[in-house]
Design a protein around this nucleic acid. Structure first.
Lengths: 185, 185, 185, 185
DNA sequence: TATGAATGAGCATTCATTCAT
DNA sequence: GATGAATGAATGCTCATTCAT
């Protein structure tokens, strides 16, 4: 699984074949197949492991930001998502690698839902501090707005006009303004 | 090229092979290779054509929204991006299909830059109406926030709690608030 | 198909793999797969072709022996089956090669039935000359009694105590006596 | 060996691999290789054991039928061969499974010879009661005529027009008539 | 110019066999 | 002696690419 992840991240989908995975993992193909019934199972297990990790980190955020004002938790969520950039990128690539596989798709949907769920609960918990929003809708918009930035960076877009921190700061503004009760002066 | 696009959209990456492309196009593989040096060239040309189309639509938006207030042009940009959803999805899939190819990557970067450029110019043109922002940064954030939603929808996330129009409306709010001069009460 | 047959006959089931078939046929694996969807299809086609050949030879026997007395037609049938020894052996090996395949099994059953059918009709046609027998039962017994000899020879049993012709002559006696009306003195 | 036989009979050649054999036998592969140098040795030993069993049963028949008239001993032989149908089928399958193996082939030849030998001796012992035949030839014909029926049944040919007992009865007639001194009226 | 049969390297997977524990 | 994880050659099959017609 580690090997598969490493290949996917460093060499791309094109280099992801079972013999390569086995070699990088330092074992033989046969051994690979002793633990996984087929290639997709390797990717599935990898996706699940990374997904669980991601989810648990996010659930931790829920507890961590319990008493924070909106301003701060937005900051925390965005920083957390950027911190998990690589793990997230890996998951996107796994999904791409076998976009046809229904199991993998389901896993991906479940993960997206679970990330959104954390944000949704964070918003609901602070409803008095925010403008009235449908927490479902708002969480969807926020999560995928941030994912959009991560995807851009992950696809090789390296903006010369800003540092990573500037982007993060700007995203914080984007989301804070989106949630703020009275944007009018 | 049309054939490749059709296959990619309808049958997925798994069915995208040169013989299939040729058959769908109604020609022989040989003919395919008379016009394209290899498979990636087909995808590259497809990406380029779709990219040009997308770009020209966006340039048209520049002219179209020349005299509109911020509120309206944000609305226009977002609707335009959603209207081009399918064409955009195709481009994402092409990029996924051969994520290792440097030519394709460069094209993708160029397209993203060119989309962002339109938004950047739209913002610059209205700098008095917006809060003071780095137009480069703001355009990056906006374009990829929207792309994030499109990617989510394209990857099979079908939110049961909102219609497409609600999402669009919410995105308009997100971006408008982001650009508005004084969100503080 | 010829290549597959040749391998099966000369080198046995163990050597029967697609790359070998292609090499013996003087083509590449790819070409093999342009004409057959998979390995079993090659064997299936081979079995069908040989089966048809065998059947047509046997149907020919029906016409050929129309006016012959029992004595002579028994002789003809046995000689014919021995003449088709190799073709028959091939079919048995094909069936062995993929004994699990239901399609192949069905083909084998169909062929056996069709051979038996010819003998059955030959017997029915001469019912006055033979003892009263159930033509179904008798044809089954006769066909498989002869097949038993062929299988023995095919499996490498090379009896030192008789020539091929002696065996054939003895079989003729076996079958003639089996059909003869009054064996008692 | 038991395990190998069970697999061969119940699941077919396709499922016959060393790991499966070990698992069914309730031991580890390693243990299997402590007693047998390789896979073929397992099959060889199985074939030998079953062959010995078959042979001893047949030798028993020699003694048992010592004083019986031809009519009865033919009946006995045929019933015995049908009674050993499963054991015999197993042997045929072992031979099929590795038809290329020379050791296995030799064993098969030896077994066939030894079965024939019993019948040969039975015939010789009763030479006054039968027509004058070469006991070698006659035993070959008889044994393989019966084996032919067994093979047919074993390969999935299930004749709808007769019961097992009818076939046996008919075979008895076949062989009795074959040996009878004066079949002419 | 168009065709499509032919090619063969490459991939997923299996399984007989070994050997460290 | 027993174990079973590890091995890797071998197999069925795919598909980008070529080239004789």
């Amino acid at each position: 699984m580690d090997a598969a992840g490493r290949i996917l991240l460093n060499e791309g989908i094109g280099a992801l074949n079972t013999n390569r995975i086995a070699k990088v993992a330092g074992v033989s193909v046969g051994s690979l197949y002793q633990y996984f019934p087929n290639k997709e199972a390797v990717l599935g297990a990898l996706a699940e492991r990374e997904g669980i990790e991601l989810r648990s980190k996010f659930e931790g955020l829920l507890r961590l930001t319990e008493d924070m004002p909106v301003e701060q938790f937005v900051d925390q969520v965005i920083h957390a998502m950027f911190a998990m950039r690589e793990r997230n990128a890996l998951l996107i690539r796994v999904a791409d690698a076998h976009s046809g596989d229904p199991g993998l798709l389901q896993q991906r949907v479940a993960l997206a839902e679970s990330l959104r769920d954390v944000v949704r609960r964070l918003i609901q918990r602070r409803s008095p501090e925010t403008r009235p929003v449908d927490a479902d809708v708002a969480s969807f918009v926020i999560v995928h707005a941030i994912q959009g930035q991560l995807a851009a960076l992950d696809q090789g877009l390296q903006p010369w006009f800003m540092e990573r921190e500037e982007l993060v700061a700007e995203l914080v503004i984007l989301v804070q303004r989106y949630l703020r009760p009275h944007p009018e002066p």
